[in-house]
Design a protein around this nucleic acid. Sequence first.
DNA 1: TATTGTTATACTCTATAACTATA
DNA 2: TATAGTTATAGAGTATAACAATA
Lengths: 152, 152
Amino acid sequence: MKNLESVGADVGSDELAAGLERLFAVWRRLAVPGGLSSTAAFTLARLSRDGPGRLTELAAHENVSQPAMTQLVSRLESRGLAERFKDPVDARVVNVRVTAAGEALVALRRAARARQFAEFYRALPAGHQAALADALPAVRQLADLGSRRSRA
Amino acid sequence: MKNLESVGADVGSDELAAGLERLFAVWRRLAVPGGLSSTAAFTLARLSRDGPGRLTELAAHENVSQPAMTQLVSRLESRGLAERFKDPVDARVVNVRVTAAGEALVALRRAARARQFAEFYRALPAGHQAALADALPAVRQLADLGSRRSRA
DNA sequence: TATTGTTATACTCTATAACTATA
DNA sequence: TATAGTTATAGAGTATAACAATA
């Protein structure tokens, strides 16, 4: 446990960011099935995780223009992975949800990535495996913090 | 410390993969300067980190076709971020290295991301910060394992 | 009038196929 | 012949601008 008032925390954060940057570079190259673009994959995963959402909200969340999201949703819809449905209180709004096929694909992709990640994980010494397991709650909270900010 | 022969290790790995998936969904949306495409950014960062490389090797490493890398390198070159140079022993080969301007941009982008990551990090309770700091060596080794496999 | 979403158009990035130069 | 890279061409994905419908 370190002194919280020292700059130690900040230095650790920079080094951690550098490590995650490298890990992400590895992560993004993992082979996954489905032939989805990066934005399509993340949008589908987010719909699966957080439930249906408005088109505009999805666009904002993925840092993409509204027309781009219109077309992305159309692509997902034509592949049967997601579908539009009307909003009960505002006729302008288009809501989007994942279909069963979409859920299945998300699960398939997640499993493929998890399988490859497990290979690396198993190659780590026990101490490192334990350290990662101990960091899982922190990782989750970081993800929560990041998701929350994006909706502000 | 857990029993290494149990399935506990695998379960931990799957949950970890799910947590990282969410963290990377946040990570990829962090605002960074420079207007580089995803592949351009990762290629430049990799050249900066691992030194010069052959064009074909870069294409393979980024999971991109050789023509795509030819054009990506041309774009980087026209922006002054990277440059081609001849191989001393094989005239067919094109080697690529980062320029000083390229290094500066990589550093700028890294710093921008680190700054935003630090915000989240500081919002974590001390215990979670410590857990992440303790996991840093494991994160680095995971990144090493992933990079190594891609060159096999 | 402001907001939500779509359509129209152009640009960037990528892949496949065909080509050139060197080994 | 095989390998390294480039050029040619086409398709996917995105942005900006202009539009339609609803609040």
